[in-house]
Amino acid sequence: MQLFIQRFFDGLDNGAIYAVVAVALVLIFKATTLINFAQGELAMFGTFIAYLFAVPPEDSLLSYSLGWAEFSVGFLPIGLLLAILAAMVISALAGAAIERVLIRPFDPTDHLPVVLITFGLFLILNSVAGYLWNFNPRAFPSLFPNGPDDFIGVGGARLRYSVVGTWAVLGLMFVVLWFLLIRTKVGLAFRAVSSNTESARLVGVRVGRTLMFGWAIAAAFGTLGGSLVAPKLFIQPNMMATLLIFSFAAATIGGLDSLPGAVVGGIAIGLIQSLLVGYLGDYDPAFIILSLAVAFLVILLVLWFRPAGLFGTARVERV
């Protein structure tokens, strides 16, 4: 029982992060029916920006040479919370710029070019981060007390403060998202564009600008997710690769266009992963790698038996 509770907590821990990234994926998908493959790398890059602001310059220093000139950039640490918030703002601006420059010029009804662009963005962000910060994992500070004794005992299992904190942040994120989408005019416009783009245009909504808003919040929340998971995964350019796949699975379970579905999907994938790896594989590292295959299997099964996911909107085509 104790082991079960512990695995349950572990699952919740991972699940929260999958949920955050899945929410970012769903935001873009809802509005554009486009999967943003660069979402993970955007989050990684944003986390590096938080890192720049959060740790002393001697650790985060960007030093690179162009042959004829040497650059060194570093910032005085401004406290982790502020650093993450600053990185979220910068990510939001970057997300908006990406929509404007890389996405908007292309016909949104033709998915392939745009999907290829997000793939390209994935590679660019990954390689640029590798060039700037190299691929060695670095420690990233945790927002929450994360020492050996920072946990609440539940039936012998350890519910770590960081897990509670991560879920609190996820809850806060949902309140903010709810406010933005339900209580603001741009949020209403965003929901209208997601629901019926042509009618949105007819009532005077500027679709491009509204999608920019979606990209901005998706990028900001991605950075938040990255900063929450970085203490556990360490920070390095490939940190989001596997996480993104689990988040895809989470979003698919939820139906790809449902925000609550993304959270439920995140928990489900987190639990499937921790229970499966725990009970079937006994935390054997080789088996942990297999849990990626499990994520894929989940995507496959959902698409097979319930293409609209658990909470998604079934598409009715009238012919």
Binding site: K185, L188, A189, R191, A192, S194, S195, N196, E198, S199, A200, L202, V203, G204, V205, T313
Partner: peptide, 23 residues
């Protein structure tokens, strides 16, 4: 008012009216 109504199916009736007054 486009053919096939062009309402926003995922939005409530009130939200549909509010977005109608968007400008």
């Amino acid at each position: 008012v486009p053919q096939g109504r062009g309402t926003f199916p995922e939005l409530s009736v009130v939200d549909n009216l509010e977005i109608g007054g968007y400008v």
